[in-house]
């Protein structure tokens, strides 16, 4: 019965002391009074037993592992950036392996251009250019899998350089040939589609001056595949397959 006093202790006081008793922080006279009340009170006695049992069940619950992509998603949702740790100087992170550092270094070099390449308006021409390059490379006898397993020791690099340089001239000729065809096709397309005019003259001029690739993407959806940026993008694209999907994080928007 709440409010009832048994053995010099009220039920409310018992309730207040219960958690401390289970924490084992109560002792002496108060603890004895508490136990005496629990023995005789029909409400508090069972409450003590059940609370003890419930606490035991709760303590048996293990901490759960958050999903692996949680931190990534949070960072994208808050800062819009995946991780900043990777952009710190390598000296600050002795635990990172050489391969990882190489990848980061390559990443910092290509990321501005790569960001441009990921934009939808560049995606098509980039995809075509990559296709052309891989075609040219395979015609010249180079497999992309070989490129991924290049030996990076200085001596090996030197040897590979001399072995490759001769062939590179040939690839270059091939690539140039493919670009030649591509640009002809583009010119042909432009000439045959007067209904969709290219950018206005002043706009085109503006874009020529604007070599800044880190800025916001222009939202205009003109069908213009030919951008000055195509070739450098190609030259410095990372080894990852250039899947030209646009990643959206629908959850947070």
């Amino acid at each position: 019965m709440p409010g009832e006093s048994k053995n010099g202790m009220q039920c409310a006081e018992f309730d207040l002391l219960l958690s401390e008793v289970l924490d084992e922080t109560l002792s002496g006279d108060k603890l004895e009074k508490f136990q005496a009340h629990g023995r005789v009170c029909p409400v508090c006695g069972p409450l003590l037993a059940e609370a003890k049992e419930g606490r035991h069940w709760l303590k048996s619950l293990q901490e759960v592992e958050p999903p692996a992509n949680l931190v990534h998603n949070i960072l994208v949702a808050t800062t819009g950036v995946d991780t900043v740790r990777l952009r710190q100087p390598a000296s600050a992170q002795p635990q990172i392996s050489r391969a990882e550092r190489m990848r980061e270094w390559a990443g910092t070099l290509v990321s501005p251009v790569w960001a441009v390449a990921r934009q939808p308006r560049f995606a098509m021409s980039f995809g075509m250019a990559f296709f052309s390059l891989s075609l040219a490379l395979s015609m010249a006898g180079v497999k992309l899998s070989d490129v991924q397993h290049v030996d990076l020791r200085p001596s090996a690099v030197k040897r590979t350089y001399y072995e490759t340089s001769g062939r590179v001239v040939k690839y270059y000729e091939n690539i140039r040939f493919v670009y030649e065809i591509e640009s002809r096709v583009r010119e042909f397309k432009r000439a045959t589609t007067p209904a969709e005019p290219g950018p206005a003259p002043e706009e085109r001029k503006e874009r020529k001056n604007n070599n800044n690739t880190s800025g916001q993407p222009e939202q205009k959806q003109e069908r213009n595949y030919s951008q000055g940026g195509t070739q450098p993008v190609l030259a410095s694209a990372p080894n990852d397959p250039p899947v030209v999907t646009v990643t959206t994080y629908r959850r947070f928007v």
């Binding site: 309730d15 207040l16 069972p46 409450l47 059940e50 003890k52 049992e53 419930g54 069940w57 709760l58």
Partner: peptide, 20 residues
């Protein structure tokens, strides 16, 4: 704090009853 303690007691006890 008193309310916190009381809720903890009742929460633990209720859980024990459910599991019993």
């Amino acid at each position: 704090e008193g309310t916190v303690k009381s809720r903890i007691n009742r929460g633990r006890a209720e859980l024990a009853r459910l599991l019993q």
